[in-house]
């Protein structure tokens, strides 16, 4: 149904059918009742109908309009149940991926050790996501697959689906989880099985995001998600750390082992500032505040961050 998002998984038909039936019946009632009401208001206006006829009710009508809606809601209930109940149990042979949600990003861990922040999945194969939260309640929502499940700390939960259409789809956090909740989104990339297998087998290349945004845009998003802007600004003002405005390519005064020196803020310097922030301390700032991001950011991510910094 075009009014919902793209149809890309095995759950689409059941869910969209339930939508169609419920919305269909609802619109019939809404339009029917509204028109009846408007007709009465017009027909029984004081000017046309100066004397009301006192009718106190009708048991037959009360029964009719209790029974018919009851039947209709049972029909709706049935279709809602039918489109949903097989979401509860994943097939035995599903492809397992571990999801780690934290404020404010998702990480996907594959059984062979690959870690990504875009969800890569094979087409036409059951995929089961095992959901873990490191902090608060999040919710993983993939509109095009018609699935959503809260990610609750301390609870073992899962969701599953069979992607049925190649493409790149949105993936959101839908349970409010604090400051950057609205930036806690990413993408799902559905690949044909052979292509997926190649991608999966290649553990040397840590390609973590599907290239769909400009690298600078991804860089900005990554920085928002991971919380760099809690300490850095892009408008020249100082917070805990220096502003990124005009940083890239300029000479920066840093303190290295007590020694002041000038360095150019190039790719190497920025990468070092993120992986090993306490080696060179920017003059006027304190050591030990920024922690190394070695485990959270891949080299790819750093490249994207650099692209973003270049734009400032």
């Amino acid at each position: 149904m075009y009014i919902l998002s793209t149809q890309a998984s095995n759950f689409v038909s059941g869910v969209d059918k339930a939508f169609l039936i419920i919305l269909g019946i609802s619109f019939l009632f809404l339009i029917g009742l509204t028109l009846t009401m408007l007709y009465f208001i017009y027909k029984y206006n004081r000017k046309k109908h100066p004397q009301a006829t006192q009718i106190k009710g009708s048991t037959t009508l009360e029964i009719v309009w209790t029974v018919i809606p009851t039947i209709l809601v049972m029909v709706m209930f049935y279709y809602g149940w039918a489109g949903w109940h097989f979401m509860k149990k994943a097939p035995e042979d599903s492809f397992n991926i571990k999801v780690i949600a934290r404020m404010w990003n998702f990480t996907f861990e594959y059984e062979n050790g690959k870690r990504t922040d875009t969800l890569f999945v094979p087409k036409n194969k059951a995929v089961k996501l095992n959901l873990n939260s490191m902090d608060v309640v999040h919710s993983l929502y993939i509109p095009s697959f018609r699935v959503k499940e809260d990610v609750v700390p301390g609870k073992e939960k899962m969701m599953w689906f069979i992607p049925q259409k190649e493409g790149i789809y949105e993936l959101f956090c839908t349970e409010y989880c604090g400051l950057q909740h609205s930036y806690m989104y990413n993408w799902v990339k559905v690949m044909p099985e052979d292509q997926f297998d190649n991608w999966y087998a290649d553990t040397t290349r840590q390609e973590t995001t599907a290239v769909i945004e400009s690298p600078a845009a991804s860089g900005k998003r990554i920085m928002k998600n991971i919380g760099c802007f809690a300490c850095h600004t892009v408008d020249g003002s100082k917070l805990v750390g220096p502003s990124f405005k005009g940083l890239y390519g300029e000479m920066q005064t840093v303190v290295t082992g007590g020694q002041e020196r000038q360095v150019e803020a190039d790719d190497e310097y920025i990468k070092k500032s993120i992986y090993d922030p306490n080696a060179d301390i920017v003059k006027g700032f304190n050591k030990g505040l920024m922690l190394p991001y070695t485990n959270q950011l891949s080299e790819d991510n750093i490249r994207q961050i650099i692209e973003y910094l270049k734009t400032l």
Binding site: V73, G80, T174
Partner: peptide, 16 residues
């Protein structure tokens, strides 16, 4: 509200 009471459809629109 009927959309929200029905399981399949609520999973889709919940918290949107």
């Amino acid at each position: 509200g009927l959309v929200l009471g029905s399981l399949a459809t609520d999973v889709y629109v919940h918290d949107t």
